[in-house]
Simulated scan of single mutants.
Amino acid sequence: MANLKIKLVRGFQGRKDDQIATAKSLGLRKIGNEVIQPDNAATKGKIKKISHLVEVTEA
C-alpha cells in the first residue's frame, strides 16, 4: 500500500477548531512537521479538509 508524506506549511492562527483538530489527528503540531500516513480514504478526506494548510507528496 502506498504512503503519503504530509507537511504542515501554514500555521493554525485564525483557523477553525475543526481544522486544527484534523491537523492534530494527522500528527501535525507545528509548521514544518512532516508525517507519513497511509494512502486511504480517511487520510484523503482529512487532507481535503485542510488542503490549504498542508503540502502532500508520495512517500
Rank of each mutant, 00 (worst) to 15 (best):
A2Q: 10
A2K: 11
A2R: 12
N3P: 14
L4P: 00
K5M: 14
K7V: 07
K7L: 09
K7N: 05
L8H: 02
V9I: 14
R10C: 09
R10V: 13
G11W: 11
G11P: 03
F12T: 02
Q13N: 10
G14K: 06
R15N: 05
R15H: 10
R15C: 10
R15V: 15
K16M: 15
D17N: 10
D18T: 09
Q19C: 07
I20F: 15
I20P: 02
I20H: 07
A21P: 07
A21L: 15
A21R: 14
T22K: 01
T22S: 02
A23R: 01
A23H: 03
K24F: 11
K24W: 10
S25Y: 12
S25C: 03
S25W: 15
L26S: 00
L26G: 00
L28I: 04
R29E: 13
I31A: 06
I31L: 11
N33Y: 10
E34F: 05
E34D: 10
I36W: 06
I36G: 06
I36H: 07
Q37F: 08
P38Q: 07
P38N: 09
D39I: 09
D39K: 07
D39S: 08
N40H: 04
N40G: 10
A41H: 14
A42L: 06
K44C: 08
K44E: 04
K44N: 09
K44M: 04
I47H: 00
I47L: 04
I47Y: 00
I47S: 00
K48V: 02
K48C: 04
K48M: 06
K49W: 08
K49E: 13
I50R: 00
S51P: 05
S51E: 08
S51V: 12
S51Q: 12
H52N: 09
H52M: 14
H52L: 12
H52K: 12
L53V: 07
L53C: 03
V54I: 06
V56R: 00
V56A: 08
V56P: 01
E58P: 07
E58T: 15
A59M: 10
A59V: 15
